[in-house]
């Protein structure tokens, strides 16, 4: 069974994400509420995909993403930034920090499932997910 790590300091965003995955996938869902907890949970839980908010207490999503990429076990785990900060400079920063895709809030549940599903199901994960995300208008890196 695949495991998704949802990271957000907002109860609303976490509940929305959890509900989408629990109702419509067989994924296990693990949550974290700040960047530090996200890194700890990512190392301990070994998720198959990570959805990471940017503006959070203790450690923001950019720092958390960089920190995760320092660990061998997390180098190839798909990280999708999910944030209200859609300005080009923030998107570019997300990719510099090592994310695979960048989605802006408010989240469209169907698009989220589709993009995460592609990351989870394909051998050529990053490439296929990039194509889907682009078709859906999300910012991604090739």
């Amino acid at each position: 069974m695949s495991k998704v790590l949802l990271v957000d300091d907002s109860n609303t965003a976490l509940l929305m994400g959890e509900t989408v995955f629990k109702q419509h996938t067989s994924c296990d869902v693990v949550t974290a509420r700040d960047g530090q907890e996200a890194v700890q949970k990512a190392l301990a839980e070994k998720p198959d995909v990570i959805l990471l908010d940017v503006v959070m207490p203790k450690m923001d999503g950019f720092e958390a993403c960089q920190e995760m990429r320092k660990h061998d076990s997390l180098k190839n785990v798909p990280i999708i930034m999910v944030t209200s900060r859609g300005e080009p400079a923030n998107v570019a920063n997300g990719y510099r920090c090592g994310c695979n895709a960048y989605l802006t809030k408010p989240i469209n549940a169907k698009e989220l499932l589709e993009i995460v599903g592609v990351f989870l199901s394909s051998d050529d994960k990053a490439h296929k997910a990039t194509r889907v995300a682009k078709r859906k208008g999300a910012s991604t890196v090739e």
Binding site: M16, T19, V20, H24
Partner: peptide, 17 residues
């Protein structure tokens, strides 16, 4: 209703929150 997944999930989230 998977076709209206986004709508019902949002309404559920609002009511729970």
């Amino acid at each position: 209703c998977p076709a209206d997944l986004g709508l019902w999930t949002k309404l559920y989230t609002v009511s729970q929150i």
